[in-house]
Design a protein around this nucleic acid. Structure first.
Length: 642
RNA sequence: GCGCCCGUAGCUCAAUGGAUAGAGCAUUUGACUACGGAUCAAAAGGUUGGAUGUUCGAGUCAUCCCGGGCGCGCCA
């Protein structure tokens, strides 16, 4: 193991051994016992690496390589724990700590099992573990193991990171097909602030899932079917197509819908026409379908404009509206009947999933066919599950839907499971989110007391941000000011939503989200822009060659801190996806940006002596890459200057 | 009435069952002859709504209260 001594950090390969379904850490010199495919990759990669070639093999090598020193130490600590514990199961989690670079706490958990003092156990583990060249260990407090990484080790790990096109982020060990159901506006109805949440959260999850290797199917479950369309189509006929198109294409969906609603509520004749029109629509009358399609197309034009403005990934290709499942509804009913789940209750065909009760304490049904024969949204949601599992062949269904729908979705999932449609490995997850509140802590409403329109919020965010950019940076060309204003405005809006735990209500506050200080998108974007500015300046300057004889300066704490942050990008992403909680990513990025600004104040870069300069430039390059990628995964752009 | 979610510093929010509960804003005090001050360094600020448990260890888990929000049969 000569290579191990010389260069321990580059001496290990981390990969996923399928036989054990467990991440494994192999010495680079070791091949025995590895699955053949991995052994081959390692052999080729090692050769490429030794010859200093930059080719596919190197990339593959880097991809398999684990850059996070916390994980590496955890892997190396595991056997030491096992030997001390005499075979007992220990999970030596190593996490960042204020008291050292990192901390492991397995000894405390073992104490009661072994009947020994935790400090003694920790001391034995420290004695048994060999982390030479990587870190020094110490026992602290009641039995924690403090980990302090060697400087050289950290630098080596940074090397690994800078060579990795994936910024150290592992692929998912078990990629799967994931459907993400999000945004879901209603046709011919305005998108409001609630749609902002599902759209922004859903889009971030899509980006994150794709980045770690899942096949993601975006589905925009638009409300394009059902009783309101009788009234909407009749109103369209009354108005005339050109007139209606003119209104709808400029985005006056609210006006259109309200006019239709008003007529429906006030005129019996109109109501009768509307009801009749629904029947005609559902019977497939071509002319009615044409008018229906017109409404859908005009609305989608408008929604698409908003999506593009917000940098949302959704396109017409992702449409999976309620109408799409229409033909499947009778099948849902039939299959439930065949499964023996269907019961008749008050004239409706229903399923009673156990565990739900209504106001009177009686069992609560999921209605699949209404009294009178119509289907309702439970039927449509069941059809969705069926379609996503059987046709799309997804194994993970994510529903980015507001928290109030929790019970309904739980019932749908339960019924789908009872029917045998949703069974492992396939499963559905309700990615619930709370309400948007005003600063008065009540549901955010406009002055008129109506839901705040999506479009108004986006416009105002961009307006405010553009004004700030103009004020702070009057010398930039106007076109660039507008471009940056859009990035900062939409970024701030998205980040405000993504940076808090999605399940809680969040308080919407213009001043805070655009405040360019604190935990906001502009702060992160500014950090990125400053780094890019330094790097641009550095490229323009002539570099003084490093004097080979000069001594490497010791790292300052701010450098250590920044490196450690960079090495945890992978952990941040997988942590985020674990709970489908984008705010974990946001928190990571904020801490990274803080580490950078502290570094920036403490460490001159371009004026540093050549060796330190080169190192710090590499550090900043990596920081900029991680910041930009992290923001990108949240759907936020990082401008070069602002 | 039943069920779900939330309750952490003045405000907005973090915190895999791990030590002395952390940030940001606001407040106070410092730092611009400076790679971008849209910044940084620091101070002060807490009975984690309350109680009882489980545990070596609880903001986190369990049970019960209190307060707030939401849902609870044919709208989606």
């Amino acid at each position: 193991m000569a290579t191990e001594n010389r260069q321990s950090a580059l001496g290990m390969i981390r990969t996923c051994d399928t036989r054990f379904r467990k991440p494994m850490l192999y010495p680079l010199s070791y091949e025995g016992g590895m699955p053949r495919r991995i052994a081959t990759i390692v052999r080729r990669s090692r050769k490429a690496h030794q010859t200093g070639m930059s080719n596919e093999c190197v990339h593959e090598y880097d991809r398999l390589f684990m850059a996070d020193p916390l994980v590496i130490v955890a892997e190396l600590l595991a056997p030491a724990f096992a030997s001390v514990a005499g075979g007992a199961e220990v999970d030596p989690v190593v996490r960042p700590s204020d008291r050292a670079d990192a901390q492991a706490n397995g000894a405390l958990a073992l104490a009661s099992k072994l009947g020994r003092k935790p400090r003694d156990i920790a001391a034995d583990v420290v004695a048994a573990a060999d982390l030479t060249g990587k870190a020094t260990l110490g026992v602290a407090g009641p039995g924690f193991i403090n980990v302090t990484f060697d400087e050289a080790f950290l630098k080596d790990q940074l090397d690994v990171l800078t060579r990795d096109g994936r910024l150290g982020v592992r692929m998912s060990p078990a990629p799967e097909r994931v459907v993400v159901d999000y945004s879901a506006p209603n046709i011919a109805k305005e998108m409001h602030i609630g749609h902002l949440r599902t759209t922004v959260i859903g889009d971030a999850l899509v980006r994150l899932l794709e980045f770690v290797g899942h096949t993601v199917i975006r589905e925009n479950h638009v409300g394009d079917w059902g009783t309101p369309f009788g009234m909407l189509i009749e109103h369209l006929i009354d108005l005339g197509e050109t007139e209606a198109a003119a209104g709808l294409s400029v985005g006056d969906l609210d006006g259109f819908y309200k006019q239709a609603r008003a007529k429906f509520d006030s005129s019996d004749a109109f109501q009768a026409r509307a009801r009749n029109r629904v029947v005609i629509l559902q019977s497939g009358d071509p002319e009615t379908l044409r008018l229906w399609k017109l409404l859908v197309d005009l609305s989608m034009q408008y929604f698409n404009r908003l999506y593009r403005q917000m940098g949302v990934l959704l396109t017409d290709g992702d449409l999976a509206g309620e109408s799409m499942y229409n033909d499947l509804l009778p099948e849902v009913l039939e299959r439930l009947r065949t499964a023996g789940l269907l019961e008749v209750s008050d004239g409706a065909d229903v399923v009673f999933p156990p565990g739900y009760t209504n106001r009177e304490g009686d069992p609560l049904p999921l209605i699949v066919q209404k009294r009178g024969g119509g289907f309702n949204y439970g039927t449509s949601d069941l059809a969705c599950v069926l379609d996503r599992v059987e046709r799309v062949k997804a194994t993970l269904l994510l529903y980015v839907v507001g928290a109030p729908q929790a019970q309904h979705l739980a019932m749908v999932f339960d019924v789908a499971a009872m029917a045998g449609w949703l069974r492992p490995p396939a499963r559905a997850v309700h990615v619930a989110f709370g309400n948007v509140l005003g600063t008065d802590r009540k549901m955010l409403k406009s002055r008129e007391g109506e839901p705040v329109r999506f479009v108004d919020v986006v416009d105002e965010a961009i307006e405010r941000a553009t004004a700030s950019v103009r004020e702070k940076n009057p010398d930039l060309p106007a076109a660039e000011q507008i471009d940056i204003g859009r990035m900062v405005g939409t970024g701030a809006l998205k980040y405000a939503d993504l940076s808090t735990d999605r399940v809680k209500d969040y308080v919407f506050d213009w001043d805070r989200m655009l405040a360019f200080e604190g935990n906001t998108a502009p702060y992160l974007q500014y950090a990125h822009a400053r780094i890019r500015s330094i790097l641009r300046k550095g490229e323009a300057e002539e570099t003084i060659p490093v004097d080979e004889g000069s001594v490497e300066p010791a790292m300052v704490p701010q450098e250590r801190d920044l490196i450690l942050q960079l090495l945890q990008f992978d952990a941040a992403i997988h942590d985020t996806l674990d709970k489908y909680s984008p705010h974990r990513m946001a928190t990571y990025l904020f801490e990274l940006a803080q580490s950078f600004t502290s570094f920036y104040e403490a460490c001159p870069v371009l004026k540093a002596e050549p060796r330190a300069r080169a190192f710090r430039i590499r550090l900043l390059e990596q920081t900029a890459r991680v910041l930009a990628k992290g923001l990108d995964l949240l759907g936020i752009e990082a401008p070069e200057r602002m």
